[in-house]
Nucleic acid binder design. Structure first.
Length: 652
RNA sequence: GGGCCCGUGGCCAAGUAUGGAAAAGGCACUGGCCUCCGGAGCCAGUAACCGUGGGUUCGAAUCCCACCGGGCCCGCCA
């Protein structure tokens, strides 16, 4: 048996179904939902089914419940030993059916299962495994990974871990956006500087160059437009532009003060150029065409940035199975193919040389509103697929990428910050191409932003908190704590533990909040090492490990029935429910459920730990039983943490 | 203007999938607990008419409608 609690649940459902059928054959029950009563005094599970149907039958719900309960008694007597864990049913409250487990047998089975399955305990396999691509992170290779991006990284990685343990064939993909204006800008700046060797971590170095270059270009561009507006005498436009340029100038001053030399050098080079904008367009166009010289330049700068990403990702234990280059999609003619097909559809039109797709018309013609959940009142704007000078635009490549992913997988999950239009447009485009089926197998896993209380982040202006920075702070803080508490450890051990604890704290902070909600970043929160944090959970694990180091778990013959304290029952019950929670997290794509569970589990253990001795427990049999419980706890907690990519240390 | 997401004690926040008994937990605050397996801990206490108003229902934090507040998005950027 892999899941004793699940078996108990099945027994309850089955008993109610049969008992209900016998008592009220005229009622056709569709689903029998079981919930957890507010207290275990009212049983381990309960059903409000009688409350649901009593009205229709004009019967008193308590009356009904009591007939069902009686029938359950009879059914149980008949079934005999086929029923393992359902001990009794009672009527409760206004007409609930409360179901009691044979705790001794149930918990005995749970402990033995957990100890035996060990690393696979709780990871129930799906009946219908599919190939799933989880695409996440996909930060543009023009600046470092910011803390906000890292939410997608940790959520995506956790999702992949959960789904893979569920038995799916999961592949983790990173989409490298190396095509388009942004990459051309960084390549331009980098080239102007004479392709310098990084003087800091490569992605940070690239980020600085990008911020400065793009800022200088933006100011230039705006100044040119201001001149135009002046000539035309367009006062409104002039005011708007002036405001915008002032904003950029402030950003420029900020950048200059932090990177004086770099800023001056880039400024000199850009000023020497008669038409930087044209040069950037040219780079972009040539790269998409596959021009060898430009290719080597852009790949050089992009690789440099990715090198920095890989360093960070490897530190946090996040790996990818595939790095998908946007440029390769274009070079492989996949993008061309998509454009060719879309051009033939009735929704394509040329607007001053650029190819547009009339998404709104397609939605109406193909009747996609209900399929895609688009409200009646909402008119979708057209999407532009190519520039007038011939290069493809992001949506076109995204469609091609989507088709590519479905060649490799049955289901695609894109982990991405909250944006709606592109995803809707993408799905409409897939429908236009006749791939309605794909539009349905694509999940857009949205997560909220990480916001800062004081000021707006802007990566374009080089104003952001990087993941590297946060990790460094967290690990440093962990080191201080470890030194305080475990001075006897070697320098090397302390370092290793600090890394595990610091990283865990950051990951936990990013995953534990409901994904859709924005997260307000405060150091206090991310570096929280008390309750409701990874260090708190890891600490419980270290405590359990410490006990287990000193006491051998004797298997087989332990008598779990000796564990009768409510604190033990509470802990046992939570352990028992791990498989169910795991399945729920995988079906609903909810890594935060695991985070919450791990915290509850650790809490239950701490309460047990503080009140009941393990190693000194008397008699010997009780000690053995408690040791087995501690072991089962340790296994469960470690498995839960592994789904979050958080390590469970033996000491800290 | 339109669209999407969010709104739960002073602050953070779970619960919303599938309506059900008494709305978790943390921070802060108050008072206790180290002769005892690690105090990053444990125990107890104060604090919420679940944004507002309607509706559906025997029953709503959960479903429906309207509104209010906050965030994000509406480019030949990605």
């Amino acid at each position: 048996m892999l899941d004793p609690w699940g078996k108990f649940r099945e027994e309850c459902t089955e008993a109610i179904r049969i008992a209900f059928q016998r008592s009220f054959p005229e009622v056709n029950l569709e689903v029998i939902a079981l919930e957890r009563p507010p207290s275990t005094d009212l049983g381990e599970l309960s059903s409000s089914i009688c409350l649901n149907v009593s009205k229709k039958l004009g019967l008193n719900p308590r009356e009904m419940a009591s007939r069902v309960v009686q029938a359950i008694g009879l059914y149980k007597a008949e079934a005999g030993s086929r029923i393992l864990f359902l001990k009794a049913a009672e009527v409760g409250g206004a007409g609930y059916i409360n179901l009691y487990a044979d705790k001794e047998r149930l918990f005995d089975a749970v402990i033995k299962t957990a100890l035996e399955l060990d690393r696979t305990w709780g990871f129930l396999k799906t009946d219908s495994p599919v190939r799933i691509i989880v695409e996440h992170t996909s930060v543009n290779p023009i600046h470092p990974i910011e803390i906000s991006h890292s939410r997608g990284t940790f959520l995506g990685d956790s999702l992949a871990r959960i789904l893979s343990n569920r038995g799916h064939k999961v592949s983790r993909h990173y989409y490298v956006d190396d095509l388009g204006r942004q990459t051309a800008i960084i390549a331009y700046g980098y080239d102007k500087l004479g392709r310098p060797k990084p003087t800091s971590k490569p992605d940070h170095f690239i980020g600085d160059i990008y911020a400065i270059t793009s800022c200088i270009l933006e100011i230039r561009r705006l100044k040119a437009r201001i001149k135009e507006a002046k000539d035309k005498g367009d006062e409104d436009e002039l005011m708007r532009l002036q405001k915008e340029v002032d904003d950029w100038i402030a950003a420029a001053e900020d950048l200059r003060s932090r990177q004086k030399e770099l800023f001056e050098r880039i400024l000199t080079e850009v000023d020497r150029d008669s038409d930087p904008d044209e040069a950037i367009k040219e780079l972009s166009r040539k790269y998409e065409e596959g021009d060898e010289k430009v290719k080597s330049l852009i790949r050089e700068v992009t690789d440099l940035c990715l090198e920095g990403f890989k360093e960070t990702l490897s530190r946090v234990g996040v790996e990818f199975d595939s790095w998908d280059w946007e440029s390769e999609l274009a070079w492989s003619s996949r993008v061309e193919e998509v454009l060719r097909c879309l051009k033939q559809s009735p929704y394509a039109k040329l607007v001053s040389g650029a190819l547009e797709l009339d998404i709104g018309a397609a939605v109406e013609d193909l009747g996609l509103r209900s399929l895609l959940g688009i409200p009646e009142s909402y008119q979708l704007p057209s999407v532009t697929l190519t520039t007038s000078f011939g290069t493809s635009l992001y949506p076109a490549r995204d469609i091609a990428y989507s088709l590519r992913k479905f060649e490799l997988a049955d289901r695609v999950i894109n982990v991405i910050g909250l944006q709606v239009h592109p995803q809707l447009q993408l799905r409409v485009a897939l429908c236009i191409l006749g791939r309605r089926d794909l539009a349905e197998c694509q999940t857009h896993f949205v997560h909220g932003y990480v916001r800062f209380p004081m000021y707006r982040m802007s990566s374009r202006r080089g104003r952001f908190v990087t993941l590297d920075q946060v990790l460094e702070e967290a690990v440093t803080k962990a080191m201080i704590e470890v030194m305080k508490r475990s001075p006897e450890l070697s320098e090397e051990e302390r370092k290793k533990i600090s890394e595990i604890v610091g990283l865990g704290a950051v990951k936990y902070a990013m995953i534990s909040t409901e994904p859709k909600k924005d997260l307000v970043f405060t150091w206090e929160r991310v570096l929280d090492f008390e309750r409701n944090s990874a260090p708190f959970i890891q600490y419980a694990h270290a405590r359990a490990s410490n006990i287990l180091k000193k006491g051998e778990v004797v298997d087989r013959s332990v008598n779990i029935g000796l564990l009768t304290n409510p604190l033990e029952h509470d802990l046992l019950l939570r352990i028992a429910q791990f498989p169910e929670l795991f399945v729920r997290a995988s079906e609903t794509l909810g890594p935060h459920l695991i985070a919450d569970y791990a915290n509850d589990l650790a809490s239950a253990f701490n309460a047990f730990y503080d009140h009941l001795p393990v190693l000194r427990a008397e008699p010997r049999e009780l000690r053995d039983a408690r040791l087995a419980l501690v072991k089962a706890f340790q296994i469960t907690l470690r498995n839960a943490l592994s789904l979050l990519g958080i390590e469970a240390p033996e000491r800290m």
